[in-house]
């Protein structure tokens, strides 16, 4: 990367505190496709000049997949260890790159002693656009391009956030098309509830294929996502349909970074 991503340990050593902590998440840290999204979120933060930091190697799984799989022990072990780290750094505000991390830290950590202001990166982008700090200029033009947005369950139904990601796309002057099942009626990509880590049960279709079929009905040029797990499921679906050339699956952070030439 062209700039150095600051860590909490470094800031602390320099006697400084960031405005916001960027919680990267496991997928954002290790999954090659999601790493690109992580770097684009950093580019956006760097571009607008917000003082931010990441935990780096001090970050750990939030415990979300353990909790959804029914292992409350492991979840709370993870949660309490993370809360200890976050509280030790006196963290006040967190932006996450993943709706699952977002939901867990925002809703399930307070009861265990970790209360923070938590936002998802699409909300951060919306805020920056509203504040005039971020526009869609200096980069790739999405004007008139057909984009359909897939609602991640833990952002949409789970936390009622439907507008922020759409606002982030509206600024592109693109042509937003909704799938038949969208917003509160949106269809899951198939990865939630720890499904990401196992083979699906016996059935007649994979859930991500069902979703991709629906997305392709809108004949989009781009499918916008806001979750690294959705990203995997939707990209796999596009590959399976052999549409990789015609349709790109991009995270909203990637679209924003591209539109701003970051």
């Amino acid at each position: 990367m062209e700039f150095k991503v600051p860590t909490m340990a470094e800031l602390m050593a320099a006697g400084e505190e960031p405005e916001i902590l960027f919680w990267v998440g496991c997928a954002g840290s290790y999954d090659e496709r999601a790493q690109k999204i992580t770097r684009d979120i950093c580019k956006i933060l760097h571009h607008v000049g917000i003082k931010y930091a990441v935990l780096g190697t001090e970050e750990s799984c939030t415990g979300d997949p353990a909790k959804r799989a029914g292992n409350e022990f492991l979840f709370q072990m993870q949660a309490m260890t993370n809360i200890e780290v976050l509280n030790a750094y006196n963290i006040k505000k967190i932006v996450t790159g993943c709706p699952h991390c977002f939901n867990t830290i925002k809703n399930e950590y307070p009861g265990l002693g970790g209360t923070y202001e938590v936002i998802h990166h699409t909300q951060l982008i919306q805020d920056l656009i509203n504040e005039g700090k971020l526009k869609a200029e200096g980069g790739e033009s999405f004007k008139g391009k057909k984009i359909t947005y897939h609602d991640p369950c833990y952002l949409g139904r789970g936390n009622g956030i439907y507008e922020a990601p759409r606002k982030a796309l509206e600024v592109l002057d693109a042509q937003l098309v909704e799938m038949k099942r969208c917003k509160s009626n949106g269809l899951c990509c198939g990865a939630g509830g720890a499904q990401m880590f196992k083979e699906p049960e016996k059935g007649n279709k994979d859930i991500n294929v069902e979703r991709i079929d629906e997305a392709l009905e809108t004949s989009p040029q781009f499918i916008a996502a806001g979750c690294p797990f959705c990203m995997t499921m939707l990209s796999d679906g596009i590959k399976l349909k052999d549409k990789e050339q015609e349709v790109k699956v991009l995270d909203i952070a990637e679209i924003t970074a591209r539109a701003n030439g970051l």
């Binding site: 990367m1 062209e2 150095k4 991503v5 860590t7 990267v24 496991c26 954002g28 840290s29 290790y30 999954d31 790493q35 992580t38 770097r39 950093c42 990441v54 780096g56 190697t57 970050e59 750990s60 799984c61 415990g63 997949p65 353990a66 799989a69 292992n71 492991l74 993870q78 720890a194 990401m196 880590f197 196992k198």
Partner: peptide, 26 residues
């Protein structure tokens, strides 16, 4: 997956020491 979280603090079998490697690439 549960074993990975327990041992590597991530649902996949990656080393915790590699968690910040994403920042090394462009």
């Amino acid at each position: 997956m549960l074993g990975n979280i327990e041992n590597n603090q991530a649902p996949w079998k990656y080393s915790p020491a590699d968690r910040f490697n994403w920042a090394q690439e462009s």
